[in-house]
Design a protein around this nucleic acid. Sequence first.
DNA 1: CATGAATGAGCCTTCATTCAT
DNA 2: AATGAATGAAGGCTCATTCAT
Lengths: 194, 194, 194, 194
Amino acid sequence: MDSSAKTGKRPGKAKRRILTAAARLFRGRGFDRCTVRELADEVGILSGSLFHHFRSKDDILFAVMEEVIVDMDATLAAALDSAPTTHDELRALIHNQLEFIHGPQADATAVLVYEWNALSPDGQARLLARRNAYFRRWQEVLTKARSEGLTNVDPVVSRQLIHGALVWSANWFDTNGAMTVEELEQAVMSMILV
Amino acid sequence: MDSSAKTGKRPGKAKRRILTAAARLFRGRGFDRCTVRELADEVGILSGSLFHHFRSKDDILFAVMEEVIVDMDATLAAALDSAPTTHDELRALIHNQLEFIHGPQADATAVLVYEWNALSPDGQARLLARRNAYFRRWQEVLTKARSEGLTNVDPVVSRQLIHGALVWSANWFDTNGAMTVEELEQAVMSMILV
Amino acid sequence: MDSSAKTGKRPGKAKRRILTAAARLFRGRGFDRCTVRELADEVGILSGSLFHHFRSKDDILFAVMEEVIVDMDATLAAALDSAPTTHDELRALIHNQLEFIHGPQADATAVLVYEWNALSPDGQARLLARRNAYFRRWQEVLTKARSEGLTNVDPVVSRQLIHGALVWSANWFDTNGAMTVEELEQAVMSMILV
Amino acid sequence: MDSSAKTGKRPGKAKRRILTAAARLFRGRGFDRCTVRELADEVGILSGSLFHHFRSKDDILFAVMEEVIVDMDATLAAALDSAPTTHDELRALIHNQLEFIHGPQADATAVLVYEWNALSPDGQARLLARRNAYFRRWQEVLTKARSEGLTNVDPVVSRQLIHGALVWSANWFDTNGAMTVEELEQAVMSMILV
DNA sequence: CATGAATGAGCCTTCATTCAT
DNA sequence: AATGAATGAAGGCTCATTCAT
């Protein structure tokens, strides 16, 4: 007889459940418009109990973002490592970003991108290194791509343009719609390539 | 000697000053993290006075957004009217959007895009018609562009990709930096065109 | 061409119109739940203009009450003077009170009775003399009535019981209903008399 | 050693204490002239804590009224049930009303009667059924009383006249004065009876 | 006299956070 | 770990009142 049977609560570690619910809530209604009570309700505990797991509401936002940014960077690093050509690396860049924006971590990724300003200055500072590392990988690939004649736009500029185009898809692309993520990936590729 | 010299208040109609300050504040710190007292301070009045000009804080957000969306649509309509070719229309699309994102109405435009969820459901409904009209113009031009072979991506998809890329520039492009808006415009054009 | 034609406002002295509207409003929704803006709207002026005629909102309440209490006492005095018998005096007491509660000054009278606590301590003090004078007349008549065997209840008590019964009729008696004020008067008389 | 000794707080359930204080305050100074901070002070908590127990200030007024009206109706029903004669029923009517107006629930009863207009339309609607039930009992007794020749005034009219007389006593009758409630009851009876 | 923008105190309510149980 | 009452700062908004025009 596990504890979830006794308490009637859904299984899974509390921290995990809080983070998942927080990502969904923060994404849907914005960090500031969500109350800790709503979050606690969603998890099935009382608001006071949240503070046994996280020091503050800000801390929850930070944890959501940190987890996804660490994952995203690690996944990208691995994907780039196993990409034989620059063209494959380019595709890995886009694939990885879309995977996060529309995959299992979609909520957390959207929160990372669109609630960045809700994060405390301190939190931003602590996440900046990872963020920079991630974009450095983009930069390197795009620089190589231009030098190889695959694209003809300045890497700094194209990095931002592509990033903007990709993350915005969180707001319109429907995973259950007619178009698949692979097709979207292909469309982006065809815009980038000369 | 104008009245502002006599009263010691900054010139300009109060509503105008509120809207301008609101756009800057809402953009910089997010609608929910701004207080009406901050806004009033910025304008140089007391918080209560705000409510002589707007019924509520929500109303101010609505007014900021409505003004810019109306302007944006009207300006685009005019620009498209005087564009001789589809290529020129395509450029007008991008030029117009960048003009708003980085021109005098930069703050309000950023608010329109990134604080959309902060707007009340009712407010969203009342602005939707304009928003749709604006995007319909994009759709039409992009459809024509593809049928003429200028691009080869589905209009719905390319509209969203380009929109995402352009509005994201609000977060990184520096008007006072080395790159001009015209150059940015050119970079985007070159990514779109086959 | 009078000024009301020019300004489009209803005729009559401003003070009068304010007092009439105030009585109706205060009675209907309570002094505290009425705003000076509502009152000004009703009169057809702006809220600021109210303060050319009265020093404060409290002052308006005071004026409404003072006018009616002065009238009520004067009318009662006259009626008692011309009442040949104690029985007639008794009837005058009731008639006069009902005349005010349901006649042209119904609103002001209801305000006097039911908004007494909304009046400032200072205002209450300034009206107390009149209030006392009015009730003294009741007391005298009721004392005489008992000594003559018309009633058999202590004058202090009966004065309050009758007063309560009469003023409460403001809350239920319908001037346009089947029962006339005269019939109501008769019903009260029959309850009082032995 | 009970918990109140340990926490330093006054004993009694919070809701109860709030309701009691609210009745006293609302009665003394009127619902609109009382602030939630005053009420919280009186109870010995902070204003925010009020809203753990009641959704709104309106809700508190409603709760005060609901409790007393339910009690009042139940007590009257019981009293009428055990009254052997119509004469006794008549006395029960008056006794019950005076018991509430001057007994332990005096404040709440006064609030019910004199702050009815401060209650939201919705609140009024939700209390109307009880109010009507209570008055229906009066009506029935008074109808019977007239048919038996105990009184000779129309039941609808006498119900309102007596009700007015009785509730008004909240404003003048002094429980600690020379006259007892029983004597007051007797005085009212003698006015009603033929 | 009237206007109406501005005032500023104060109101009800919300909400992240604490803590004794 | 969880509870839930209490906290207390802050938030959006109201409103009687003032005053330059």
